[in-house]
Amino acid sequence: MSQHLLNLLVTGGTGFLGKPTVEAALARGHRVRLVVRPGADAAQYASWTERGVTLARVDLRTRAGLTEALAGIDCVLHLAASKAGDMYAQYGGTVISTENLLWAMEQAGVARIVNISSFAVYDYAGMRSGSTLTERSPLAATIPPRDEYSHTKLVQEQLVQAATTQRGMRSVNIRPGVIYGADNWWTARLGASHSAKRWVRIGWRAMLPVTYVGNCAEAIVLGAERTTTLAAGTMLTVNLLDEEVRQGVYAREVQRRLPSKPKNTVIPWTVMRLVAWGAMTFNKVALGGRAKLPAVLVPARLHARFKPLRYSNAAARKELGYSPRLSLAEALDATFAAPASRKHTG
């Protein structure tokens, strides 16, 4: 049981990472208020409300009701974000939501937040192959955006940083790596596509910064507890991964647990890198740079997914006291214990 029992507001608490985060918060004795959409069916949260979780029916894309939802809250766990749609949809779900949340936190006098960001914020193309990505590694440029997700997560971080500095808030900014778990074991860092019969993979030696969803959730709650000991005006940023594992090893371990092993077509990283460079050059020279190409043919995006780098969770261990509960093998066993995970679609 934790020493600091907190009243937590959890945004995005109904999603893939949000659900285990609520569970982890309850397990450590915290009280949880869960943000749900106004049209949500309360019955689906019955198992939580029976354990004291309260519901705040608000939509973060508007300020209506947000200040009231924050009454009595010690710390916000901000997981809500958009991962799909065009730039404007992701602005609405990620950036404007965060603007509204930070505004309401100021109104309600709530000064602590755990912001869930992403490894997508880093500038992979500017890093040397084989170097170690740390919290101090260069961030991607916001203009022009590399892609919608990385751009909006960067802007989200900037908003939290600005509010932290200006208002003397205490913030923990967590950048999780590849989060895997039940029904969500595939990662775009493995390759271009996958089906029951065939995986088209890109590279096999690069490291994946993986974190099991349950482990990640526990780290987020540790982040909330860490806000109580931070100095005012401080934003602590940590990369979160359980361990680094080679693409080939992760793919083999996943395929071993599938009901039938798919065939693998593996394109070497160096070859793909050259193809993407060629596509970019053709686009620039012949098409004026206006063509929209698949992500694997855009060097900055290709590097973000497949570049061979090293990763470390030293900061998370040191600053949050993080120690992943489940190992890769245990976490994959837990992942594939869920029937949905065995459908080749994760």
Binding site: M87, Y88, Y91, V95, I96, E99, T142, I143, P144, V155, L159
Partner: peptide, 12 residues
């Protein structure tokens, strides 16, 4: 109304 969206358009 969104300062971030306005800044994005300004910079883009």
């Amino acid at each position: 109304l969104s300062p971030s969206l306005a800044s994005y358009a300004r910079d883009m």
